[in-house]
Design a protein around this nucleic acid. Structure first.
Length: 440
RNA sequence: CGGGGCGUAGCGCAGCCUGGUAGCGCAUCUGCUUUGGGAGCAGAGGGUCGCAGGUUCAAAUCCUGCCGCCCCGACCA
C-alpha cells in the first residue's frame, strides 16, 4: 500500500476524550473514530489489525475442532423468555421494537440462539461432540462506556458453544477451548493467564478468565510468578487427546486470581514470598462450562446410546476481539507510539522515502516495495512529500515492526537503514541485505 | 445509577465572571524557500459558539429546559 493512496488520518494532538494510552494511540494513529459513547467506526488501519486478530482466532478455533457459522445481531425477545434471561438481563440489553411491534434485542451474547439452532437439528449423541462458533458484533448498553474499545458498548466478539452428551464430554470440550485460548493469545504476542473466575450472568461453576498483564490494566491481579513460565502447547497439540493435564498445569499448580476472587491467605500459603506478583490485568477471554442451564429449559435434548433423551451439556467461550486491540496496545507501546507484535501488525514493513522524486531513491523504494509485496510482507510505502522528521514520527506512532528508511545520503554509499520498532535498533546495510533480514 | 466537569473551525484551547455580533496554536489550501527526527516566510479558506425557549436595543456571554460527551464511584466481554 502506498501511503499517498491510503487513508490514515493521524492526529498530532491527543483528543481530550481519550484517557488511557491505548485509546489515545488508536485515535492518534487514525485507527478509530468515535461515533457515539462506546460506539466506534474502524478506520482502515484499525480495521486491518482487527482482521488479523480475527483470523488468528479463527485459525485456532478451527484447529481445535470448532465449526464457524454466523448468527444475526438482532434476536427475538421470545427466545430470551425461554431461558428467563429476558427479564434478568436488565438495562444492559438494548431492546428494540420493529414496525409490527415485535420485541427484538441487539444480542449481548448468543446462548439462547445457538441452543435454538442446535435443538432444531441435533437429536442424537452421534452428532456429538459439536462446537459451533461465530465472530459477530455484540451490544451491551454499558452504563458507563470508557477506555475506548476496552469497554465499548458495541464490540466484536468470538463466541463458541460446545455441546456434549455428558459431563465428562463437556469438560473435555472445555479443555480443548482452554488450550486453544492459550495458543490464540500467545500467537498475538500476549501473555494471557487463565484465572479462576466468577461466572456472572452466564452461569455455571467451571469458569476461567484469561487475563493479559499490563501496567494500565483495569483490575488488580495476584499470581505466582512461576505461572508465567509455563509452556504454551505448540501447533502439534492433539485435540483428540486428553488435555486435562495441560489444564491442570495452568489451573492447579500456581495461584492466580483477579481481585474479585482473590484470597490473600491462600495466596500467601501457596506462594513463596519471592514468587508473589501483584499486577494489573485486562480480561480478553472467558470460558464457561454450565451443563444444562440453557439446554434444559429450552429442551435441547439428545438421545444417548441407551435411547434415553437428556439435555446437552454445554459450555460457552468468548474472546473480546475488538477489546484485544486495546489490550495489545496497553501491553506493547512506548512514548512514541504503538509497537505491534508482528502477527497482528497492520503492515509488516514501513518503507520511508526520504526524498520522493529523487530518481535513485524512487527506484530503490519501488524495488523494495515490489520485493516485500511479492514476499507477502505487506509493506506500507510512505511516498508522500512530508519532511523526514514527520515521517519518522508517523512510523513510530503506527508501530510497524520494521522501518526501511531510504534516502539519497545512504544510497550514495549503497546503503539503506533498517530500524526495528520494538528495540529502536538501526542498522545500515545494502538494500538486498535489508530485504533478506526482513524475510523478503 | 450516585457525584463532578465540559460542549466555541478538523484537533487542542482562550473568550463567558463584568452582554456590544468571535480569537489563538496546530491542521488544510496557494506561492516561494527548505528537506536524515513533527521546517520558515507570505497569503487564503473554514464557526447557525450543542439544541430550543426566555431576558435585553443587543446574547458565545445572563436565565430555563433538553441533548451529547468526559471523569470518579457502583457495575461489566
Amino acid at each position: 500500500m502506498r501511503l499517498s493512496r491510503f487513508f490514515l488520518p493521524l492526529l498530532k494532538e491527543t483528543p481530550s476524550e481519550a484517557q488511557i494510552v491505548s485509546h489515545r494511540l488508536m485515535l492518534r494513529a487514525g485507527m478509530l473514530r468515535q461515533e457515539a459513547a462506546g460506539i466506534y467506526a474502524w478506520l482502515p488501519l484499525g480495521h486491518r489489525v482487527l482482521r488479523k486478530i480475527e483470523e488468528i482466532v479463527r485459525q485456532e478455533m478451527d484447529r481445535a475442532g470448532a465449526v464457524e457459522l454466523l448468527m444475526p445481531t438482532l434476536q427475538l425477545a421470545d427466545l430470551w423468555r425461554e431461558s428467563g434471561r429476558y427479564d434478568d438481563y436488565g438495562a444492559e440489553m438494548l431492546r428494540i421494537t420493529d414496525r409490527h411491534e415485535r420485541e427484538l434485542l441487539y444480542g449481548p451474547t448468543n446462548e439462547e440462539m445457538i441452543t435454538e439452532i442446535f435443538r432444531a437439528y441435533v437429536r442424537s449423541y452421534k452428532a456429538l461432540p459439536l462446537n459451533l462458533y461465530h465472530i459477530q458484533w455484540k451490544f451491551r448498553d454499558e452504563q458507563r462506556p470508557r477506555f475506548g474499545v476496552m469497554r465499548g458498548r458495541e464490540f466484536l466478539m468470538k463466541d463458541a458453544y460446545s455441546f456434549d452428551l455428558d459431563e465428562a464430554g463437556g469438560k473435555a470440550a472445555y479443555n480443548r477451548m482452554f488450550v486453544a485460548y492459550l495458543r490464540t493469545f500467545a500467537r498475538m504476542g500476549l501473555k494471557a493467564i487463565p484465572m479462576q473466575a466468577e461466572s456472572g450472568p452466564i452461569g455455571g461453576e467451571l469458569s476461567h478468565e484469561f487475563i493479559v498483564l499490563a501496567q494500565t490494566g483495569e483490575s488488580a491481579v495476584y499470581l505466582d510468578r512461576r505461572i508465567l513460565d509455563l509452556p504454551i502447547p505448540d501447533e502439534t497439540v492433539d485435540y483428540g487427546s486428553d488435555l486435562a493435564g495441560v489444564v491442570a498445569d495452568w489451573t492447579g499448580r500456581f495461584y492466580a486470581a483477579t481481585e474479585d476472587v482473590h484470597d490473600p491467605s491462600r495466596f500467601e500459603a501457596r506462594t513463596p514470598e519471592d514468587d508473589r506478583v501483584t499486577a494489573r490485568g485486562i480480561e480478553v477471554g472467558q470460558t464457561f462450562f454450565f451443563g444444562d442451564k440453557y439446554s434444559k429449559p429450552m429442551k435441547a435434548v439428545v438421545s444417548g446410546p441407551d435411547g434415553v433423551e437428556r439435555p446437552a451439556q454445554m459450555g460457552s467461550y468468548g474472546i473480546g476481539v475488538s477489546r484485544l486491540l486495546g489490550a495489545i496496545i496497553e501491553a506493547s507501546h512506548d512514548e512514541a507510539g504503538i509497537i505491534w507484535p508482528e502477527p497482528v501488525a497492520p503492515f509488516g514493513v514501513g518503507i520511508v522515502s526520504l526524498r520522493p522524486g529523487d530518481p535513485a531513491v524512487d527506484a530503490a523504494c519501488e524495488k523494495a516495495y515490489d520485493a516485500l509485496t511479492a514476499a507477502g510482507k505487506e509493506p506500507l510505502y510512505d511516498d508522500t512529500d512530508d519532511r523526514p522528521g514527520a515521517k519518522f514520527a508517523a512510523m513510530d506512532l503506527i508501530g510497524l515492526p520494521w522501518q526501511l528508511i531510504i534516502g539519497p545520503r545512504g544510497l550514495a554509499e549503497g546503503q539503506v537503514e533498517l530500524k526495528r520498532r520494538a528495540t529502536g535498533e538501526r542498522q545500515s546495510v545494502s538494500l538486498a541485505r535489508a530485504l533478506e533480514i526482513v524475510g523478503a
